[in-house]
Design a protein around this nucleic acid. Sequence first.
DNA 1: ACCTGAACACCGTTCAAGT
DNA 2: ACCTGAACACCGTTCAAGT
Lengths: 202, 202
Amino acid sequence: METRPRPYHHGDLRAALLARAEETLREKGAAALSLRELARDLGVSHAAPSRHFKDKQALLDALALTGYERMTEAMTASQADAGESCRKQLEAVVRAYVCFGLDNPVLLGLMYSIECDPQASDALLEAAGRWSEHIERLVAEGQRRGEVREGPVERIGVPVFATLHGYADLAATGMLPQGFAEDGLDEVIAFILRGCAPDGPP
Amino acid sequence: METRPRPYHHGDLRAALLARAEETLREKGAAALSLRELARDLGVSHAAPSRHFKDKQALLDALALTGYERMTEAMTASQADAGESCRKQLEAVVRAYVCFGLDNPVLLGLMYSIECDPQASDALLEAAGRWSEHIERLVAEGQRRGEVREGPVERIGVPVFATLHGYADLAATGMLPQGFAEDGLDEVIAFILRGCAPDGPP
DNA sequence: ACCTGAACACCGTTCAAGT
DNA sequence: ACCTGAACACCGTTCAAGT
């Protein structure tokens, strides 16, 4: 009559695996992630996960993908609440990116760990590619409004993206001095804007 | 009479382990690194490495440390060959950083993977801290020469460092469009300099 | 369709013992 | 001081079999 573990997992095992995996990532780091332990935690056999992810790598890829999705969500939400000016929009993007990195440092690392095998999940590379486009749209809009100097959006967008990414990554890995992570945000935005400023009046 | 594997490793096993580990990192990625395979490749017993690294993590930390050392070397060498102007010096640093990332993508990832455990090897954090100081010295020198705007070196240095790091990281993980990695270097430098430019003539 | 249970080859870590 | 060899608990992956 005691409540014994059901022989079959009741809900969506795939989603449960991803959720539990992310907890582990947050609590114990990426190195400690084990499919068998995941299965144990969820009360299924150690072979069950293979029905949903052919590989441990497949699970990690799926995990990274959810990261991209949630970050895109957060960014667009943050932009919707921001003003129209290029500065405000940029601030919204930077803030969302940095917050995401601070909240999900290990996941962020995973999202950029494409271990250099060229056959890395296409969906992942595509998701990553959308960042660049997102930034470039911002640059183009800034140009239309006269807040960003003229030039190919790609060549201006990449350095902006690099600054954004680098700052979030340094913040996530705890390599920024003291409380610079949240505190120095204005500084970074000002830095980016100076770098994007239209050729000043002579 | 045949040359049989010696029962004892002749040279410096510690150095041999690090060297072989880096090859594996480059060829098969971080996930494929195994202490037992390393020992096998070097013709020693699987327990031998533990005499030199108490842990797999200890080996990874040592590996990351060699990365910091070699990168510092490359940077100072690159700076010595460059001119005195802030632009030339900055260019030397950026070029060295990006080249290192392109040549050692997995190692660079390792160097910034401090899995968020606060007790992470002190030597590593100290080595990382030296980058910031390096950049800040550059900023200070730029200010002395009037090429960089006034202000606390730390607050100006961090965004510069973020751009530098972000660009190298994106290049290393292959997330830059086409041949932007080597090609877009000037763009990044120009971007940084604009962001550091002294308040222009009115 | 989804999961189990056993099997296989591999791993990191430890420790008494050898030289 | 440095390494071996055996032992332990754990891992990812596969596969016939169950419901």
